[in-house]
Simulated scan of single mutants.
Amino acid sequence: MATTEKAKEGGAIRETISVVIQAILLAVIIRSFIVQPFSIPSGSMKPTLLVGDYVFVSKWSYGFSRHSLPFSPPIFSGRIFGSDPERGDVVVFKYPPDPSKDYIKRVVGLPGDKVQLRDSVVLVNGQPIERLQNGMFEGDFQGRIIQTPIIQERMDNGAMYGTLDVQPGSSGDSTPVFEVPEGKYFFLGDNRDNSADSRYDVGLVPADHLVGKARFIFLSMENGTPAWHIWKWPSDMRWGRLFDGL
């Protein structure tokens, strides 16, 4: 009798372990090849993304590289089923100087493009991106609550999005021409005076550092509230931002 009970206990343990392993494998597959959630820790993409936003990123959009996998194992190079992002896409990528860090910015320059900022105006291949003011944005900038115009940009492919230029005439508003070689991309943050991007140490981002395309916001918490503080959702959730597409 005791032997039978022990056998049943052993079978239950093995079944539990098997279920756990299958769940982990399924989670790894989903995270690596289908969709991965990311949280927004900084204001570099204001007004599009705010600190406390959580976004879903599609992993298949640009193909797969070693950075699609957890911990970026060096098991192969390049991209499998690779394709170019489009200008205006919001993309998560690995920070080239330290691939353990994830960055999220907007694609402005594709391979073969020449990109320059001139008095806050973005030029792609010598053509200025259309700009117009579209409302005001109120937010915290370096510890001060201020209002600043939202400058809507419209690319030649129809992509439209808001940007901020809190300090017109700052050093990042006018740049040399960046020539984007094959296999690399030029990124800008929408919050142009408060973004580490391809104008600075991020540089031009290699294709195999692309992680995926940000699709939509699925949670948005203010006041620094962690998403798992469910009891604070009624007061701290930005309900109006849920499921906003990017």
Rank of each mutant, 00 (worst) to 15 (best):
P181T: 05
G224H: 03
Q36I: 07
R199N: 07
F137D: 03
P97D: 12
D98I: 06
T175G: 01
A207N: 07
I40K: 02
G143Q: 01
D197V: 07
V20C: 13
I17Q: 02
L188R: 05
Q36A: 14
Y161V: 03
N125H: 06
T4Q: 12
E9I: 10
V115Q: 02
G162R: 06
D244E: 15
L110I: 01
T48K: 05
G82Y: 01
D84S: 12
L69V: 05
M237N: 00
G189R: 06
K213T: 01
F81Y: 08
E153L: 06
V108S: 00
V202Q: 03
F137Y: 15
V19C: 02
V205S: 04
S44Y: 11
E179H: 12
S39D: 11
D193M: 08
E179R: 14
N191C: 09
T175E: 07
P168K: 11
S171T: 08
L25K: 05
G43C: 09
D193K: 02
F56P: 00
D236Q: 11
M136A: 06
V28K: 05
S170Y: 09
A27P: 00
S174Q: 08
A23S: 12
F186Y: 13
P149S: 11
G158C: 05
S120Y: 09
L246F: 11
G43Q: 05
F81D: 04
G109V: 11
D156S: 15
V180F: 08
F216Y: 15
W60D: 01
G158T: 01
F64T: 02
P73Y: 07
V19L: 13
T16N: 09
M237P: 00
A207Q: 13
Y200D: 13
K8E: 12
K101S: 08
V107S: 06
S72L: 07
N194C: 04
R66C: 11
P37S: 10
A159Q: 04
G169V: 08
I129W: 01
H67N: 11
I30F: 11
P111R: 10
G52E: 02
A23Y: 06
M221W: 04
D208K: 11
V108R: 01
I217D: 03
D119T: 05
F76W: 15
S171F: 09
L246Y: 10
E179S: 15
G109N: 06
N194A: 13
P47N: 08
P99I: 14
F33K: 06
I75N: 11
G240E: 14
G63W: 01
K232W: 04
T148G: 00
L219P: 00
A196Q: 12
W228S: 12
N194F: 14
I80G: 02
P99F: 06
E222F: 03
V108K: 02
S174E: 07
S100R: 14
M45R: 00
K232L: 11
W60G: 00
P226K: 05
I29A: 12
L210Q: 02
G162Y: 11
I150E: 08
S174D: 09
D119E: 15
Q152N: 04
D119S: 13
S77K: 15
M136Q: 14
I34F: 14
S120T: 14
W228G: 04
F218A: 10
K59T: 06
S77H: 13
F33Y: 09
F93G: 04
I29F: 14
P99H: 07
G143E: 03
